[in-house]
Write a protein that binds this DNA or RNA. Structure first.
Length: 861
RNA sequence: GGGCAAUUAGCUCAGUUGGUUAGAGCGUCUCGUUUACACCGAGAAGGUCGUAGGUUCGAAUCCUACAUUGCCCACCA
């Protein structure tokens, strides 16, 4: 009568379709009176992206929380959506077109954008289907895309308000420029990579200057030394004239604290146009700015004979010229941090450019307070420090991109701007008339916004902002933001700032920061390196539930973890275990319709046995444990408790006992409670099992059943049954050592206190069947067996039931605790102490004493 | 340069506010198909909790230093 193993293929899809068709993903359709709202905004995946395990972790966490709160009877809303992912998507489409030999510059902006939109239409469903496959119970009727008209309007409104308040400004500043992407980048989009290079020592008249970038030499406008550097004090404030590779040059010598006297020679060449530190010095000392590298990564006209060369070519050429003139002192190997574009990995140039910036400091202040005051709680808490550090050192955000795919900046320039100095206007539509010159012709800024600008509005723009919708009133602030720590600054911090700015509310109350899923070598999974795993083939092989459990159980927030196929297979086995418990329950139920078999020592099925009381207590404990841990966002603990209970208590013990002493009512009670509690974690298999018992009607779905409530906190039966369990295990152990085959039933004599003996007499049936032993005649037979406990004489086992709690260690622990208690009691009895110590201290000591007493009781019980 | 994390069984990792004998999965060894499940069951072996100090009646847990590994931030040209 072997049953088939659980096969998730063919089970999951129909179930998801029924969930979605039921309408219950939408809180408006949920049954019953629901007062509390619970909401999560899904971090929108890249619309053209592929689902990877990082998404799977996020979706699992969010779905567990959403399903939990839905079953708790709350208005549970999880808003899904996708992100246009400006630069990433543009690069991807550019590459696709490149394969066909098309460059975006040939076809122009409008045609290029048509290609991107077409790509988005074609593949946009793919990622959302993948999210569905993970079982996400999000409300697709509220799905959004960051470039939907409504969200675009939100972006424009937000921009215009910030612009009008002066928090967005345009300025010419040093920014990071990616010559491949042909756009400015924000600080966060630049990754510094340690690269082996050289440190060149060059002669500048009386000085020797060390530099890693000799090609910027032609853009030097000063030399700098540390103000207190005695070696060079006499040159400070002077101008020096010296020979260069192409002739003579005169530069001022300035003193600046930024110069490290210990590095190189203590003299720095200053190139304000191409180095952030030099830019800062240039501002302080009003130095000339000489841009010698252009947006095309080639030297500009100002570079003289090197004009038109690529930066790397110019470097070689200048070094060769210096050497020829005897101006190169030496070259040392040197590793330096070289900035790279986060998206395309090209080397990024710091250069001067006119861009839009957002003033961050005024926005950061309330955002810091929000976390400090606890209005927003980061999990794990240690990220507070990282957050504060970044917020306190925040710099203005370069928000304009010279990209085509994105929200075009809603700023309009009067055509007469050049002649009449007209002021740019921020507006959704083209302005009617220029306030300065009364001109009527405008041109819109060609740049687009950093993709994270729209993401920053996500929690409220998806709920209808800038309109004050019912959704916004009901569901904002959202409860939880689930994300990886890698986008804490990119996204989380900016959401907090922008939400506080526009809604005066925090965007979410809790930030659940998951660890990154690492590959089996402990490296970050990366799409570009091809180490990202598509979880869906894994889900097909092992089931989505198994994937979800493998991403949640045994992990802890903020901590990266490795995932292996073996781990997934392990949870697949667990799901199958549950499936077979289901099979057993169904079979048991049908058997019970015929008269129950009464076996193993005359206990009828009608009476409630110790095991029944035990499973009831344990089930109640489980409800408490799972609920408590879910409420505290301890998903792993909650899931682990379920795993252990289902396998090692329900299956290994209670199901086995059912074969001896059936109690179908309590079996079903425990089983259905487990299905409910496990549903957030493993929604598919639990729904499938539930459906077998309760049919396919929408209102009977497990997904909307009420979360179980614990009825008792008793542990009397648990403690008693524990003794039986221990005894059974010991008997099995003895059997294994003595190599007694399991089908032989051995007689066993007990020895122990009256209390224990009566326990075994009372539950003889259960014990004898599980341990496969039998009590010969009467327990009193112990009198005949005074010596050699646990030995065996002529085919009789003597089982000496020692009370294990009397171990030397426990006694030692109890003795030391006793000492402590006495010390505390003496202290409290001391009149001088009672008289002089503050009442709070006395109360504290009294509390300590009570706790110690409680612990002692616990220890010795 | 600043900061964070990790270090627990052969491997991958849990370990709530300090408290009985530090847990799980995989792997290993022995036994086993007794009417849910071999994607199984029973039993076992395996740990000076990175090192050295400290606090405490009691430390994997709190404190200090050190070591190793990984990561984040930062303007050493």
């Amino acid at each position: 009568m072997a049953s088939e193993a659980y096969n998730p293929l063919g089970v999951e899809q129909p179930i998801y379709k029924r969930w979605e068709a039921s309408g219950y993903f939408n809180p408006d359709n949920l049954p019953g009176k629901r007062t509390n709202a619970f909401s999560i905004a899904m971090p929108p995946p890249n619309v053209t992206g592929e689902l990877h395990l990082g998404h799977a972790v996020g979706v699992s966490v969010q779905d567990i929380l959403t399903r939990f709160h839905r079953m708790l009877g709350e208005k549970a809303l999880w808003v899904p959506g996708t992100d246009h992912a400006g630069i990433a998507t543009q690069i991807m489409v550019e590459r696709l077109l490149q394969k066909e030999g098309i460059s975006r510059h040939e076809i122009g902006r409008e045609t290029f954008l048509k290609h991107v939109w077409a790509w988005k239409q074609k593949h946009g469903d793919r990622i959302t289907d993948q999210v569905r496959a993970l079982g996400a119970s999000c409300d697709w009727s509220r799905e959004h895309f960051t470039m939907d008209p409504a969200l675009t309007l939100a972006v424009q409104k937000a921009f215009i308000q910030l612009f009008d308040e002066g928090l967005i400004y345009r300025g010419e500043r040093l920014i990071h420029w990616c010559s491949r992407c042909q756009t400015a980048l924000s600080d966060l989009e630049v990754k510094h990579v340690q690269e082996a290079g050289h440190l060149y020592y060059l002669t500048y008249g009386p000085f020797t200057v060390a530099t890693t970038r000799p090609e910027t030499k032609v853009g030097d406008t000063a030399l700098a030394v540390h103000p207190t550097d005695k070696r060079y004090a006499k040159y400070i404030g002077k101008k020096i004239t010296f020979a260069t590779e192409t002739g003579e040059l005169t530069l001022p010598v300035v003193a600046d604290k930024l110069v490290d006297p210990k590095f190189g020679t203590g003299v720095v060449k200053v190139t304000p146009a191409h180095d952030p530190a030099d830019w800062e010095m240039g501002e302080r000392h009003h130095l000339e700015i000489k841009q010698v590298i252009g947006e095309d990564n080639r030297m500009t006209k100002l570079a003289g004979k090197y004009a038109g060369m690529l930066v790397t070519e110019a470097r070689d050429s200048i070094v060769a010229d210096l050497q020829a003139k005897g101006l190169l002192v030496k070259t040392e190997p040197h590793t330096a941090n070289v900035p790279h574009c986060e998206r395309c990995n090209s080397v990024v140039q710091p250069l001067l450019s006119k861009q839009w910036f957002m003033s961050m400091q005024p926005l950061a202040k309330p955002a810091i307070t929000a976390v400090k005051s606890g209005k927003i709680q980061l999990i794990p808490k240690r990220f507070d420090k990282v957050y504060f550090h970044w917020m306190h050192n925040i710099r203005d955000w370069c928000i304009s991109r010279q990209l085509w795919w994105g929200h075009q900046i809603p700023v309009w320039y009067c055509r007469n701007e050049m002649d009449k100095d007209c002021k740019p206007v921020a507006s959704v539509t083209e302005p009617k008339k220029c306030a300065t010159c009364k001109g009527v012709h405008f041109v819109q800024d060609q740049d687009t916004l950093d993709t994270w600008f729209s993401s920053g509005l996500w929690t409220f723009s998806t709920l209808g902002w800038p309109k004050n919708t019912k959704d916004l009133q009901t569901f904002h602030p959202t409860n939880v933001m689930e994300t990886g720590w890698d986008i804490l600054f990119f996204w989380v911090a900016r959401m907090i700032m922008l939400s506080l700015k526009f809604t005066k509310q925090v965007p979410f109350k809790t930030v659940y920061i998951h660890g990154l899923v690492l590959d089996k070598h402990g490296k970050k999974m990366s799409k570009s390196k091809g180490t990202g795993i598509d979880p869906l083939p894994m889900a097909e092989k092992y089931g989505t539930d198994a994937i979800r459990l493998s991403l949640i159980l045994g992990t802890t927030p903020g901590q990266d973890f490795r995932l292996s196929e073996e781990k997934i297979a392990g949870y697949r086995n667990f799901i199958n275990k549950l499936w077979n418990i289901g099979n057993f329950v169904e079979r048991q139920e049908s058997l019970q319709r015929t008269p129950p078999p009464v076996r193993g020592g005359g206990q009828g099925g009608s009476r409630i046995s110790l095991a029944d009381k035990w499973i009831r207590e344990r089930t109640n404990w489980l409800i408490t444990e799972v609920t408590k841990n879910l409420q505290r966002n301890k998903l792993s603990e909650a899931g682990q408790a379920l795993y252990d209970f289902v396998w090692h208590e329900l299956a290994d013990w209670y199901v086995e006992i059912q074969k001896i002493q059936p109690n179908t009512v309590l079996l079903i009670e425990a089983y259905e409670t487990v299905l409910k509690l496990l549903h957030p974690f493993a929604p598919f298999v639990t729904e499938a099992l539930w459906e077998k018992r309760h049919g396919k009607a929408n209102e009977d779905m497990l997904m909307i059943q009420a979360w179980p409530k614990a009825k008792t906190q008793k542990t009397i039966a648990t403690k008693e049954f524990q003794i039986i369990q221990d005894a059974v295990t010991q008997m099995r152990n003895i059997r294994a050592i003595k190599k007694i085959p399991p089908h032989i039933i051995e007689p066993v004599v007990l020895k122990g206190s009256m209390k224990i003996k009566s326990l075994f007499v009372q539950h003889a049936g259960t014990f004898q069947a599980l341990a496969r032993v039998i009590f010969p005649e009467k327990i009193e037979a112990e009198r005949q067996t005074s010596s050699k406990p646990d030995g065996h004489i002529s085919g009789v086992n003597f089982f000496f039931l020692a009370v294990k709690r009397d171990t030397a260690e426990v006694q030692k622990g109890a003795a030391s605790l006793q000492q402590y208690i006495q010390a505390l009691e003496r202290k409290l009895a001391n009149q001088a102490f009672a008289k002089n110590a503050p009442t709070s201290v006395v109360a504290g000591e009294q509390k300590k004493l009570d706790e110690a007493k409680a612990k002692l009781r616990q220890l010795t019980s």
